[in-house]
Nucleic acid binder design. Structure first.
Lengths: 223, 223
DNA sequence: TGAATAGTGTCTGTGAGACAATATAGG
DNA sequence: CCTATATTGTCTCACAGACACTATTCA
């Protein structure tokens, strides 16, 4: 009964949305294997410090971004004989959302952490490119039946911004009326009272209500 | 760099549907800790034999049921310091569906494997009761927007049986018309040509099409 | 024919898609 | 007033809910 226990790690696909594009957080690996390559932020459980897998993930992310992500959700676990050259390994992958401005922005000088547009990813270590694909696919589905992608936005945002984000995820334009109607009916946003001026009529600034974290519409937007 | 690597296992919540009730497959533990208690079928990765986590899970299930489950899907991974008395451990949990008649039925004489109605579970080892809850909740959601629960039925089944299963999962009666309309429109079932007589007008026997494995309705049934 | 179960017709209500119309800001 | 952006009005259509009705079997 003494099998080789596969090495188990956690990794996070952290998304943010800035200047019209979806970005993902990457770190440069220090250690072998694949030292010097870009990879997802992650690491191994510290059994003395972490109470559970989520704590491990959160701890690693705080090290990289300076703050706790506003949305963190387990995505999938991948374990096989080929993903790590050292042999059988398992990763528990989380998907996270965070407002870019909330982060201690990784400086471009210290180039071991960076945000990268999802359509301009460098070559990545292990199976991390696939993991990002999976996370994107899941997030796209979410955009069809919830407004949780909004956790990638700053604390306050306009409906146009939220819609733009959803359009980016889904990959096609949405009807303004449909998008707003369902959000309003479900009461998912809180009017901050403030407005943002930008060329035309000022837009109302909203915050996500706590309800929006778990709310799923019964009817999807069309794909 | 030499942390204690948590013990990683896989476990499966295997459902079937028989005589109007949802049942789950349990096995009696041989080994400590918690020897003699009922638990989910599972085990540890055999790095020499298994290509990936799904293979590990499938192998363990074949040992217990005699056949590969017709539906197998990763549910969640749980890892923390408290779920196993030996210390930090992780389980990757799969959710599976299988027709009971397809299984090499665990004999009640050899009482180390048994099917149990989900509302009559014995005390279970570790956090396995919670894991079953999570799997049930997921399966209930599935029943609202897909017909994948049908993989818990025999190869051929009637629409009434499929609807009964969904009603059991959702916990409330469904409109016959709505249930049938959406399935028919999506073309998810294949008419076997056969009928089953049972007191009244014979019911058409259907099989699941391959499409039904991945098909999601855009609109949920009401919860 | 009557009971039992299978399957259909059809009306209503809800909410998404489409797109036009109106509102509010700065030149 | 003109341009730009935000917000609303409103028509249509697809589809779920409700429930009555017809169909097919056996006794």
């Amino acid at each position: 009964m003494d099998f080789k226990n596969p090495l188990t790690t956690v990794d996070s696909v952290v998304f943010t949305y800035e200047s019209g594009e979806l970005q993902v957080l990457l770190v440069k690996r220090n250690l072998e294997p694949m030292a010097g390559m870009w990879a997802l932020p992650g690491g191994i459980v510290d059994t003395d410090q972490d109470t559970d897998l989520r704590a491990t993930t959160m701890r690693k992310l705080i090290e990289k971004t300076g703050v706790a992500p506003s949305y963190l959700d387990q995505l999938i676990s991948v374990g096989n004989a080929t993903r790590d050259p050292r042999g059988w390994s398992i990763t528990v992958v989380y998907s996270a959302l965070i407002a870019k401005e909330a982060c201690r922005t990784p400086s471009d000088a210290v180039s071991s952490v960076k945000w990268t547009p999802v359509d301009q990813l460098p070559e990545l270590a292990f199976d991390h490119a696939e993991l990002i694909d999976t996370a994107l696919e899941r997030m796209k589905q979410r955009a069809l039946y919830s407004i949780t992608p909004g956790y990638a936005l700053p604390e306050e945002f306009t409906l146009a911004e939220l819609q733009k984000l959803h359009e980016t995820l889904i990959g096609k334009p949405l009807q303004k009326r449909s998008f707003r109607r369902r959000i309003q009916q479900a009461g998912l946003l809180i009017d901050s009272g403030r407005k943002r001026k930008e060329g035309g009529r000022p837009a109302t600034l909203y915050r996500l209500s706590e309800a929006s974290r778990d709310y799923n519409f019964v009817r999807n937007l069309e794909e």
